[in-house]
Every structure is written in C-alpha cells, then in structure tokens.
Design a protein around this nucleic acid. Structure first.
Lengths: 222, 222
DNA sequence: TTAAATATAGTAATCAATTACTATCTTGAT
DNA sequence: ATCAAGATAGTAATTGATTACTATATTTAA
C-alpha cells in the first residue's frame, strides 16, 4: 500500500543494514507505532500479535520478549495516545488568551492530531466501548475526564468574560464540543478521508461557536 | 437462563404453545434480534456464531441452516437497523411542518432509537470502519447517504423560509447534525449510560439550534 | 565471551463452517 | 381420515485455520 515504512534495508548499508538487534525500549516504541499504524486500517480489536509482528518485521513470539501479554501492548498504546494528544492540544492553546480562541485552537489541534493518526480514535472508541475493564480502558477514561473538566473551566471563564451567552448550559456545551469532534472523526473514518475532516473542521466549528456565543458577537469576517 | 423458550411442548397442545421447530423466516428474525442484543454489551466484531446460537438456545451449527455464512447474518442485521431507524425518524417528522421542528423531532427520535437499541450504533460504527467491503457495509453506507441528503434538503428549506441564517453553511450544518448525534451516542456508549443520553439530547440540540438559527429568532422560553 | 534480542517450533483454546444423522412437520394418494 | 414419503429444522461431532502465549535454540552486538 504505502510502501514507505521499512523496505529500505536491503542493500544500503549505513550504520545498520539489517537492524536486527534493537534495544528493548526502542523496540517497545516501534511496537506502539506499529499498532497505531495497523489500527488506521483495520478493526483494532482484531489486530493480532502476529499482524503486529509482521508489520514490524519480527516473528510473533518475539513480541512477548518485550511485553508480558497483549493487554500490556494496549496499555502502552493508550498511554502514547493520551500523552501525545494532550500535549498537542495544550501546545495549541498555550499562547492564546481568549477562551473562545483557546477552544478553537484546541478543536483544530485535536482534529489535526486525529488526521495524522487515524488509528488513535479507533482504538479509543473501541477500547472505551468494550465491557472488559482493561488497564488501557482505565487510562482512556481518565484522559476523557481530564479533557472534559478542562473544557468546562474554559467555557465557564468564557461566560465570565462575556464572550459566551450568560444562559449557556456549560455541561451541554462541553458535551457538544467533544461530541462534535467525535462526530467529525466518525464521519471521516467512515468516508476513509481524513483530508475532508481537516477541511470540514473550521466550518463546523464556526456553527458551534455561533451556538455558544453571545448574540451579535460573532462577526462573519469571511 | 430464562427457560421460557421451548420446553413447553410436551403435553399442553392448544394451537401452538411454543413449538421447538420454528419456521425459517421467524428463526432468521430471532437471529437478528439476538445479534443486536449481544452487540449491546460486547464488541460486535467479536460476536461468535456460538454466542449467537447460545443466546437463542440453539446449537451453533443450526445457524447455518438459515444463513449461508456469517456475512449473511450481518447483512440481515444491518437491513433491520436501516429499516427500523429510518421508519422511526420518518414517523417522528411526518406531522411537523416547520423545518427546524422536523429536525428536532428527527434528532430526538434518532436518539430514542439508539437508546432502545444500543447495539445498533455499535454495529454501524464497527461495520462502517472496517476495511473489508462487506454487503453489510454497502447497506450502511447507502443509508447514511440517504440520511445526509434528506438533511441537506431540510436545512435548505429552513433557510428559504427564514428560520435559519442566510449565511448558513448547509453542508457543515448537516455534518454537524449527524456528528452531534454520533458524538452523543459515543459518549453514552463510553459511559455505559443510555438514560444520560436521553437527558442530554434536548440540551445539546438547543445549542445546535442556536448555531444555525437566524439571530434573534431563538427565544429562550425556559 | 556473554547476555540480550530474535528465531524456531511448539501448545491449548477458539473460530466459522461442514458433516452425518435424528426428530418433527406437511402433504397427497388411497 | 390415514399414513407413508419427502421436506424442514434440529443435534452432536469434527474440520482446518487462527488465536494468544511459551519453551528452547540461535544469533549478534558490546
């Protein structure tokens, strides 16, 4: 398909021609990347250890030299997703003072992250829906809680500084913010087109902003 | 577990107490219901034919007397979902004239359907995301297309009759409508609480309506 | 050399699907 | 009406493929 992952070690011998022996920690990172990669194009729940191993040019058994079991792999992947997503969102909102500006930056940063890593939301969705209470699920849930709390704070301060409607339902607004992202992501995953999501995101957020802003505030400067 | 399925045909013979042998078509319907039931509490993709059979008090092999293979089961299930969901939405919007009124009725009807059948959206999400182009996926995709087209028409006529903003982005508004539902559903599935979704839906739709309505139109009559 | 990293080659469990066979209902000629 | 013949719906056992996981041998970098 993409053919750009790792076929480049046949002849060209620089430092490592056949990088067979890789230190354990780096191998774990490679494993996480492989899983996220695979999750981008197949049901996360049915990604086998054999498929992971094949994708990173290893034998299946070798995986278990670096992870005690499959759940541990999932935990590592969820950890990666939570860390990188939150970092990206924080970075985007850092230099902006206005609450609505912060929210827009967060929204677009979140969308961009998902567009870069389509496997991430699929894993989140799949993992969170499962009945089984895995370590990975606990991680995902705590990230969601943290996300929602931060949003509520932001919306509340937006009301206080007059950018948002006084009668705005803070909880509903936070729910809709997250829901809007999830909905956009779902539709893009269904369409199999992440670029479409990038294009739609600003237009959709504009409507959301209309919905929460103080009447008359939202100027259409397009 | 419930013990009321088929043990009752030894002595009592009226017209039909509960015959052990069930005609093929009804058995197929029972199968569909069993799958949707199971999908409500476990990953649809990992529902086994054995689990389906057990849930409807049959042996695993008997399933294949009524379906040629597993894909055929999924196709039948998707057909059921598409038919019932669309019927319910149509019924809700039928007697309402105002476009925004129609949209609200559709929104709430959609949410109610999902709350009644939590397995349905899980199957749709799971099926639509998969890379494999199954008959079930084709069915789901055509339903989504039909849904989106109907929404765009409704929003357009809402603009024409003055209920919605003139500068409203029709496509984005339709995307956000569906996305809002999907987001609400996702969050409820994650929380494992369908009643919460029923309660949140009107509050969230109110914000959406704010976002698409003509300025000054939306009266807060609460 | 030596210890970590990987390969090889297994395991028991589970999957969808098929088989051989049995039980029950339906039908039509008498 | 009756009752063999055929159709229908079921069971139980088994298939080959695939799963997560493991035991042990081999390779390679320091």
């Amino acid at each position: 398909m993409d053919g750009c992952i790792c076929m480049a070690n046949g002849d060209v011998s620089l430092t490592k021609t056949k990088p067979k022996k890789i230190p354990a920690e780096e191998r774990r990172n490679i494993t996480v990347e492989a899983v996220i990669d695979l999750a981008g194009s197949s049901n996360p729940d049915s990604i086998t250890t054999a498929a992971i191993a094949k994708h990173m040019k290893l034998t299946q058994g070798a995986i278990f030299r670096h992870f005690p079991n499959k759940d541990a792999i999932w935990k590592a992947v969820m950890n990666w997703v939570a860390k990188n997503l939150m970092a990206r969102i924080d970075r985007a909102a850092k230099d902006i003072t206005s609450p609505t500006g912060k929210m827009e930056a967060m929204f677009l940063a979140h969308i961009a992250f998902v567009a870069d890593h389509p496997g991430a939301p699929r894993m989140l969705f799949g993992e969170l829906q499962g009945a089984r209470q895995t370590p990975a699920k606990r991680l995902a849930q705590s990230m969601m809680k943290q996300y929602a709390a931060r949003l509520r704070d932001m919306i509340t301060s937006g009301k206080e500084c007059g950018e948002l409607r006084d009668n705005l339902d803070v909880e509903a607004a936070a729910t809709l913010f997250i829901g809007t992202i999830q909905g956009l992501v779902m539709q893009s995953l269904i369409a199999g087109d992440m670029d479409k999501m990038r294009a739609d995101a600003p237009r959709v957020f504009d409507i959301y902003l209309h919905g929460i802003s103080r009447a008359g505030d939202t100027e259409e400067q397009e």
